[in-house]
């Protein structure tokens, strides 16, 4: 779409110029908040109140970052967001690995070993992608209490796995549907069983969807706030909750540069993932949301 032949008339050139103008303006709209955030995070406080939003930092300083990382107050405690940053990793990594593994096995069983009712099982699980999480918050809080893991990282990992497998199952199911069933038939005749076929035949070709699933789960869980705020204690909070606390802690002067540095810290991992694997990120977004 776009094999439009154009003659280079002056009017066409003007149109082209306008086109680029609009596109660049739009790009500014999206990029400026990030630029402002970054610039503010390296300005001393004095420069912020004196200068304007877009003014370039005169005396760039890394102090707000170190303060945000190790000293800023998040609620009662004043030890920065650094610890919570690692908290997030400690929650995200197991949750991503577990939910992706389960999703891959589910997708495999649902597409390559169909049985009576397997479509129903899928529909049943798919619904988990759509519910508003408010509807599970209260029972979840109580269940975590019974299990003795409320306010713990294990509890948060459990929550993210439980509500992540609907998505990972969806990803892997839709991917494996496109893999010919004859491959599995051939492997069965060759004498391979359920797990062996998965391990030797399916898994080696699953790299693209594993990347999509890992990236999707990583961003979702890293960016989560609702579960984090509802099911964590001050020492198990993920970084999003700590950031929100930091920004809303009203002791003394508002240090906007520290706020912005903390926001940058919270945003960096997902931004890095996005920049490194943008293609898979987009694929996850569209796959996770468009196709049922």
């Amino acid at each position: 779409m776009a094999n439009v032949i154009r003659r280079q008339t002056p009017a066409a050139r003007l149109g082209r110029g306008l086109l680029y103008g609009v596109l660049i303006l739009a790009a500014l709209f999206y990029i400026l908040p990030l630029v402002v955030m970054l610039m503010t995070s390296v300005k001393p406080l004095s420069e912020i109140s004196a200068g304007s939003l877009l003014s370039f930092p005169q005396n760039p300083t890394f102090a707000p970052w170190t303060k945000a990382w190790g000293e800023a107050c998040t609620g009662m405690r004043c030890d920065g967001v650094g610890g919570y940053f690692w908290n997030s990793f400690a929650i995200v990594i197991p949750a991503v690995l577990i939910s992706t593994t389960i999703g891959a096995l589910n997708g495999y069983a649902l597409t390559k070993w169909r049985f009576k009712g397997s479509e129903l099982v899928f529909a049943l699980m798919l619904f988990g992608c759509f519910i508003p999480f408010q509807v599970v918050l209260l029972p979840m809080a109580q269940t975590l209490g019974w299990l003795g893991i409320s306010s713990s990282r294990a509890g948060l990992i459990l929550v993210h796995v439980v509500f992540g497998i609907a998505f990972t199952t969806l990803f892997f199911r839709n991917f494996y549907v496109g893999i010919p069933n004859e491959l599995v038939s051939a492997a069965k005749l060759d004498g391979a069983g359920f797990f062996r076929i998965f391990w030797r035949i399916l898994l080696p070709v699953s790299a693209p969807i594993i990347v999509v699933s890992v990236i999707w789960q990583f961003t979702q869980i890293w960016n989560d706030f609702l579960f984090g705020v509802a099911f964590s204690a001050h020492n198990t909070q993920p970084v999003t909750v700590a950031l929100n606390n930091l920004v809303n802690t009203s002791t003394g002067v508002r240090e906007y540069n520290v706020d912005m540095a903390a926001a940058m810290i919270a945003a960096l991992p997902t931004l890095v993932v996005y920049v490194l694997a943008g293609k898979y990120f987009v694929r996850g977004l569209t796959a996770g949301s468009v196709k049922g």
Binding site: Y30, P33, L34, T219, W222, N223, D224, F225, T240, L243, N244, A263, A266, A267, T270, L271, V273, Y274, V275, F281, L285
Partner: peptide, 9 residues
Amino acid sequence: YPMALSFIV
């Protein structure tokens, strides 16, 4: 890229 950010950020 904003889609990669947390709503909190």
